[in-house]
Simulated scan of single mutants.
Amino acid sequence: MDFLMGCLCLGLVGSVGAGEAAAPIGVKRWLSSVLAKIEAADRSRAAGQNGGRSAVVGVRVRVGEDGSVLAVEVEKGSGTSSLDERAVAAIKAAGPFAPPPAQTLMPNGTTELSFPLTLPGQR
Rank of each mutant, 00 (worst) to 15 (best):
R62F: 00
E112M: 10
W30D: 03
A98D: 13
S78K: 00
S68W: 01
A89S: 15
C7R: 04
G19S: 11
M1N: 09
A47R: 14
L4D: 13
C7H: 09
V27C: 09
A94E: 02
A90Q: 07
V74D: 05
Q103T: 09
Q103I: 13
L10K: 08
V27P: 02
W30L: 09
K76I: 04
F115V: 10
A47H: 12
A41M: 12
A22S: 13
R45Y: 03
L83N: 04
G64M: 07
S32P: 01
G79L: 07
V74C: 08
G64P: 04
L12A: 14
V59P: 06
G121D: 10
V74H: 06
A21W: 03
M1K: 08
A18W: 12
S81L: 14
E20Q: 15
T118G: 04
V56E: 12
A55Y: 12
P99H: 02
A47D: 10
A90E: 08
F3Q: 06
M5P: 02
S114K: 06
D2G: 15
G48F: 00
P116A: 05
G52N: 09
A40F: 00
S68G: 15
E65F: 04
G6Q: 01
L35M: 11
E75C: 11
C7V: 09
A55G: 06
A22P: 07
G19E: 09
V59L: 15
L113F: 01
V69E: 07
S68T: 13
D66T: 09
F97R: 03
G95D: 01
T111Q: 02
E20H: 10
K37F: 01
V74L: 11
M5Q: 13
V34G: 01
R123Y: 07
I91D: 03
R86K: 09
V13N: 05
D66Y: 00
V34Y: 00
G6N: 05
V56Q: 12
V59Q: 10
T110M: 04
P120K: 11
R29Q: 14
P24I: 09
L35E: 07
P107Q: 08
E85W: 02
S33L: 10
C9Y: 05
K92T: 03
A94K: 02
D84R: 06
P116S: 10
P96F: 01
T111V: 14
R43L: 15
P96I: 04
A41Y: 09
Q103P: 05
G52P: 06
P101K: 08
G95Y: 00
R43W: 07
R45I: 08
M1V: 10
V59Y: 05
S32F: 11
P100A: 05
A21S: 14
P96K: 02
Q103V: 15
S114F: 01
K92L: 02
A71W: 02
K37P: 02
T111K: 00
L70I: 13
A47C: 08
